[in-house]
Write a protein that binds this DNA or RNA. Structure first.
Lengths: 276, 276
DNA sequence: TAGATTGTTAATCGATTAACAATC
DNA sequence: TAGATTGTTAATCGATTAACAATC
């Protein structure tokens, strides 16, 4: 689960500390008249795009029906988890048979809100923003980039992927026109909060943040963070632990519990002079 | 928690289905002679970079000591969670006082393995790979990009951020020379698995994958995935749910249970200015 | 000593997993 | 009917949270 998802639900009940996005599964309050999909767990939501992608691949290959076992393998999860996840959407399988690929694609797409087109603006057209503006994966999945903004004279006015980069000063007016739902922030950390404040003030309620800062937003605004350096740091942690374990194993060879495999570890050299 | 982390631990005990990265907290097997940091939970590890960043900001401002309350606020988490997380590292605070910023920076850096320099190669120098190659956030956090590879004649030979893009054919030889620990994959989905296989075959044991596919890797190789389109899809899910709730609220206005605040749908409120 | 704040405990919550009854 | 596979239940596990005793 990517719990960088700083989300506060629209119900905004004043009970302090209630984290929405996981609405009161316990209480009463039917919340309305929806049938299912009311209380899809965050962890499940985060996996739906994966399932959808696996299903799309299957559909392209002409597969019409798939078992939870096979789909789970394609998506890299366990079949029990997959079935549980799908059951939250209402369960569209047939016992003894499996899931109809086309139907499931449709259902997941609807649940993810992909049956409509969402408009996206990108703010900050540096290296990364430029790449995002040109990323084919957005358009192909129903996200339309409708605006590019930056404040640097070096890029304003340039054409990127068919759009002209506009100065940030025009942002508010553009939003009033184009009504994007999602803003992608690819600006430097130092200005990210200020830009975010402006974005939120215009009514945009979802933000994808690439700046390495924790954005403060009012209730009701969703922020997801992609932090590239953090990803490397997390990998580094595991490498470091691996190296530490390998060192320990060399020092206390008898302590090795079992099945250590090719017990020499690849990074031994790189580690040669490190901590502890 | 970012549980895209497909990780298999170095202990590789043959017990089937055991997910490592969360080593047997229950069992016996002391795993060696390390003091602490043995069993840092994945969720905690994923937050350490956040803490480190917040601390760095504090350090730059000249702050010498910080309370869990203040640091937690800066990192966007609760103070209890922060203290619990830090306690997994061994706890370096002083009751009644707080944490010494410099000391904590040092401790977290060591735990993340950032006291050494990790070498990174980037494979796939399209839009995204190009941006990653130029991303300052890597170098500034101790990750050195030592190689860029691609197979397209359009980019091979070009100089990006001081490095010449080499053909993928030279990859194996280069790895033997430069011994990178981490490979970043920014290649098209269609070839990602094949490229990954080559990467893993050279002994690289950590992969950061930007291709929208689930990579199959042998035990002991860490893969983390960054999926840009998925991030947007998850945001779309929440927007879609928000819209559905708003619709339900309009149709059954009396059904609003309590504390609905400005019961109009959040979209409207957000547009008018900032919510709540 | 009095005030502050950590580190830890215990309760709670959400997510995962295995197993199996329901049912195609 | 026999075989297959879903949808759900119940057990387990890991993560979060609040509260507070320890202690600076």
């Amino acid at each position: 689960m990517n719990d960088d998802d700083v989300t506060v639900g629209p119900l905004s009940g004043p009970r302090p500390g209630q984290r929405a996005g996981t609405p009161g599964a316990g209480g009463g309050e039917p919340t309305g008249s929806e049938e299912a999909g009311r209380g899809v767990p965050d962890a499940t939501v985060a996996r739906l795009p994966q399932y959808l992608r696996a299903l799309t691949v299957l559909a392209e290959r002409g597969t019409e029906t798939v078992s939870s076992e096979a789909l789970a393998a394609a998506a890299g999860v366990g079949s029990a988890k997959l079935r549980k996840d799908l059951s939250h959407l209402g369960s569209y399988g047939t016992r003894g048979v499996g899931y109809e690929v086309a139907r499931l694609v449709q259902q997941i797409s609807e649940h993810l809100g992909l049956t409509q087109r969402w408009s996206v603006v990108i703010i900050g057209i540096g290296n990364l923003g430029h790449a995002l503006a040109g990323y084919g994966g957005f358009a192909s999945r129903g996200f339309g980039v409708v605006g590019l903004f930056d404040d640097s004279p070096a890029v304003v006015g340039k054409r990127v992927n068919g759009l002209v980069v506009r100065p940030l000063a025009q942002f508010e007016a553009a939003v009033a026109d184009e009504r994007p739902t999602i803003a992608v922030l690819a600006v430097p950390a130092a200005v990210a909060q200020r830009v975010c404040d402006r974005v939120v003030a215009t009514g945009v309620s979802s933000v994808l943040n690439f700046a390495p800062v924790v954005l403060q937003v009012p209730e009701g605004v969703h922020v997801r963070k992609v932090d590239l350096a953090s990803e490397l740091q997390i990998l580094a942690f595991h490498e470091q632990r691996r190296a530490a374990l390998a060192r320990a194993a060399r020092l206390v060879p008898g302590a090795a519990p079992a099945g250590r495999g090719t017990s020499g570890e690849p990074e031994a050299a790189a580690v040669a002079g490190v901590v502890r």
